[in-house]
Simulated assay, not measured.
Amino acid sequence: MLHVGCHLSSAKGYEAMGKVALSIGANTFQFFTRNPRGSKAKAIDEQDISRFLKLAGDNGFGILLAHAPYTLNPCSADPKVTRFAAQVLQEDLALMEYLPGSLYNFHPGSHVGQGVEKGIELVAAQLNDVLSSGQTTTVLLETMSGKGSEIGKTFEELAAIIERVELKEKLGVCLDTCHVYSAGYDLVNRLDGVLEHFDSVLGLERLRAIHLNDSMTPFASFKDRHETIGKGSLGEQAFINLINHPVLRELPFFLETPRDDAGHGQEIAWLKEHYRA
């Protein structure tokens, strides 16, 4: 079964997100744990979560993906920023236990002049501080496009973070198609080769989710500019290949394209049409 969804607003709660997902043909979704540009998490409504979990179970939802706020930078040179990142990660992982067995995705951050090695060390140190053996959530490092001083533009950088983390079993990777294509991994012409390289560096068992995004910019542009599926430099056939690849087809796919809910519904319908059951 194709498990596909998009990013939904959590402002009205989990049950509301579940109903929106169903209305546009989705059977999973991604959401922010808090305002993507802010710091305050929404209070937990256990009744709302209980209603959502029933809705999800009744409708065969796939695994959910939560996304950390964009302001999170665990490898900043500013101690205030790293303390904020640690606080957010701790609070969010506590929240995620109300949705057991889900995924939590974050951008590794930017080293802002400290160098890649130092950035990797700082990200790993934060993860060692916040991960716990009892948590049911898998924390995903997102592949990045390589703009500026971002960490995570190569599979090797993500592997270096994971290598330094004690509870490695709590970690996975979210592959963003726009980001990796912009970072120089040719998903259009060498999909098998990219996946083989991922396997050799990280292990395919680490790949837990896919962000499905076309790119406004060309291959190896090192830019982060998402585009509607089939309207960018990857093109329609690349996404048909991605969702049907034997290594990827059972993973959850999440759209982050510049569309509203109705537009995402159109993309979901197109993906379902081209998925080979």
Rank of each mutant, 00 (worst) to 15 (best):
H7T: 11
H7K: 12
L8I: 15
S9W: 08
K19H: 05
I24P: 01
N27I: 01
N27P: 09
F29A: 12
Q30I: 01
R34G: 03
N35I: 05
R37H: 10
K42S: 15
E46F: 06
E46K: 12
D48Q: 04
D48L: 00
A56Y: 05
G57D: 05
F61M: 02
F61S: 05
G62N: 00
I63Q: 09
I63A: 07
A66K: 01
H67Q: 00
A77C: 13
A77R: 11
D78I: 11
D78L: 15
R83T: 13
A86N: 14
P100Q: 11
S102H: 03
N105R: 01
N105P: 03
F106E: 01
H107A: 09
P108A: 14
H111F: 12
H111T: 14
V112N: 13
V116F: 09
K118S: 15
K118R: 15
E121I: 11
N128T: 09
D129A: 13
V130P: 02
S132A: 13
G134T: 06
T136K: 05
T138P: 00
E150C: 14
E156F: 15
A160M: 13
A160H: 06
E163S: 09
V165W: 01
K168Y: 00
E169M: 02
G172I: 09
T177N: 13
V180D: 05
Y181K: 07
Y181N: 12
A183S: 14
G184W: 13
Y185I: 10
D186I: 10
L191A: 11
E196S: 10
F198D: 03
S200P: 02
L207I: 10
R208E: 06
I210R: 04
H211V: 00
L212M: 09
N213T: 13
S215H: 08
S215Q: 09
T217F: 08
F219K: 06
E227Y: 07
T228N: 12
I229R: 02
G230E: 05
G232S: 10
G232P: 06
Q237M: 13
A238S: 15
I240Q: 13
N241W: 14
N244W: 13
L248Q: 08
P252D: 07
F253Q: 01
F253T: 02
H264K: 07
E267G: 09
E267Q: 14
A269G: 04
